[in-house]
């Protein structure tokens, strides 16, 4: 375990040195601040608290951005070090392959967590400083949004690592990463919507729809934040979906966790069998 933490520490250090941490933090902070102040302006008129609006808009942003950042960092984790020749030397040390993979995962999630917490936290702090009245419930929703965003990022780090452990060259890993992002973030929902419209309520049951939503970490995250949290459903336009679904926050959270653990375990299994 100690070895895994050492690998994680090195990963974070490299992330700081390569400017990944600072770039991701700045990007998230800039977008979050923009959304916070643009979004807070009309809040008084629709009767929602400023922070609720921010939670809704930030979680929409997270769905696009965090998977992208996570995949960008993680797709290189195994295959990149293999190609540069640094992986062999590392594996000749007293460190198991699962420790290398687990350490890299921890380090990359830490990078994402720092970027998300400080980037989005800056937006929350700015709203508080600007004198918006936010109740404890609002802050709770905000904290939950940040926490689940990190979890979403972790799921895509795990997926990126799986891709990285499977392929023989970096280009392929990058291609898979882009493909995963397009599929999960853009195409999945559209395809689902198209199916629902085409089917016109004939064969697809609510249960099947729920399953389809759980099969995509981005959808699980969206439901958790936009529909699952009390009072936010109406704001986000997801109320309709939220009412029809039997998926409560515990199930959605479990789905997100499974999306972290299953790809990570698969990546470890693939990496353990890989011929060096």
């Amino acid at each position: 375990m100690n070895a895994a933490l050492l690998v994680a520490g090195k990963e974070v250090r490299e992330g700081v040195r390569n400017r990944w941490v600072i770039a991701a933090t700045l990007l998230l902070a800039a977008l979050a601040l923009t959304l916070a102040f643009l979004g807070a302006a009309p809040a008084g008129r629709v009767g929602a608290s400023a922070l609720d609006v921010v939670v809704v808009s930030l979680s929409s942003l997270s769905i696009f951005l965090l998977p992208l950042i996570a995949l960008l960092i993680s797709h290189d984790a195994v295959v990149g070090e293999m190609e540069r020749g640094t992986m062999l030397l590392l594996l000749s040390y007293p460190v198991a392959r699962w420790q290398v993979l687990g350490g890299k995962f921890l380090g990359q999630v830490a990078i994402l967590a720092v970027a998300t917490v400080s980037g989005y936290g800056a937006a929350g702090a700015a709203l508080a400083v600007a004198g918006h009245d936010v109740g404890p419930e609002g802050w709770w929703a905000f904290a939950q949004m940040i926490g689940s965003s990190v979890l979403l990022g972790a799921a895509f780090v795990a997926l990126g690592m799986l891709a990285s452990a499977l392929v023989r060259d970096r280009g392929t890993a990058a291609g898979i990463a882009v493909g995963l992002w397009l599929l999960m973030v853009l195409i999945w929902d559209m395809a689902l919507l198209g199916l629902l419209v085409a089917d016109a309520g004939e064969r697809i049951t609510a249960g099947m729809l729920d399953a389809a939503l759980l099969l995509n970490p981005a959808d699980a995250y969206r439901l958790l934040n936009l529909a699952g949290l009390p009072g936010l459903g109406e704001l986000s336009g997801m109320a309709g979906v939220a009412e029809g679904t039997a998926l409560g926050p515990p199930v959605l959270l479990a789905a997100l966790l499974a999306w972290v653990l299953v790809p990570l375990a698969a990546a470890a299994a693939v990496f353990a069998r890989r011929e060096l």
């Binding site: 250090r13 490299e14 040195r17 540069r84 020749g85 062999l88 030397l89």
Partner: peptide
């Protein structure tokens, strides 16, 4: 010591 050893240049 591997042949033509490499390290991460950022550190």
């Amino acid at each position: 010591l591997p042949e033509s050893v490499t390290f991460n240049g950022a550190l």
